[in-house]
Nucleic acid binder design. Structure first.
Length: 195
DNA sequence: CGCCAGATTGACT
DNA sequence: GTCAATCTGGCGG
């Protein structure tokens, strides 16, 4: 089986975030395969995490403490952000997918993004959802089914998979421990931020 | 229904 | 580097 099983997400969000690097995010769009290797992620926890949506309560918090392996899609600044629900038994958490390295369907992704520069295609959380035509309709949809239109497969990342970490990007208040993970040296990592 | 903050992006100085 | 567009989701009324 190529897709990552549901159990893959049945661990702490930080562990899942690190393990997702190098995996293949696949979108079936109009019968065509669009995909890219995940090169940047961030882990978010429960109410004790000041940057987490779970802290505010409401529907998103419910999804974050619900079934693992489901997509969590929500909008900020007119962009859709894609997360995967991941936590241990009885826990709360999700992993934000921040950047992918384009693999299949690059030309179609360029059309969807309306950009020329390939570097600009998927090097940010709001950019990759646009490139893969991911929106609210995927909210709470499982990513572990072999025939899902949006799923995560075992990939073979081209090159050495050297994992680095830093503090999360764009949050006003972060935890003392850095929870952003990225593939060092990959050109599609959104940006560098010092520890 | 109105208010407001925000896990962003792209244009511009 | 600065800055604002633009809209979702949560919450109060």
């Amino acid at each position: 089986m190529k897709v990552l099983p549901r159990e893959f997400y049945f661990r702490g969000p930080d562990e899942v975030a690190a393990e997702l690097l190098g995996k293949l995010l696949v979108r079936i769009y109009k019968g065509r395969r669009l995909s890219g290797f995940i090169v940047e992620t961030e882990a978010y926890f429960g109410p004790e995490d000041p940057a987490s949506r779970a802290k505010r309560g409401g529907g998103l918090a419910k999804v974050m403490e619900g079934e693992v392996g489901l997509a969590l899609v929500y909008g900020v600044h007119r962009k859709w952000l894609l997360n995967v629900v991941a936590h241990e038994e009885g826990g709360i958490g999700a992993v934000l997918i921040r950047a992918i390295h384009p693999f299949e369907g690059v030309e179609l992704m360029k059309e969807l993004r309306k950009v020329r520069k390939i570097r600009e295609l998927t090097n940010g959380p709001g950019k990759l959802t646009e490139a893969l035509a991911v929106d609210k309709k995927f909210h709470r949809k499982p990513l572990y089914l072999p025939d899902s239109d949006l799923r995560i497969e075992r990939g073979s990342y081209p090159g050495a998979l050297k994992v680095a970490r830093s503090h999360r990007i764009g949050v006003s208040e972060d935890l003392p421990v850095p929870y952003r993970f990225y593939v060092e040296g990959d050109p599609y990592v959104s940006k560098v931020r010092p520890l």
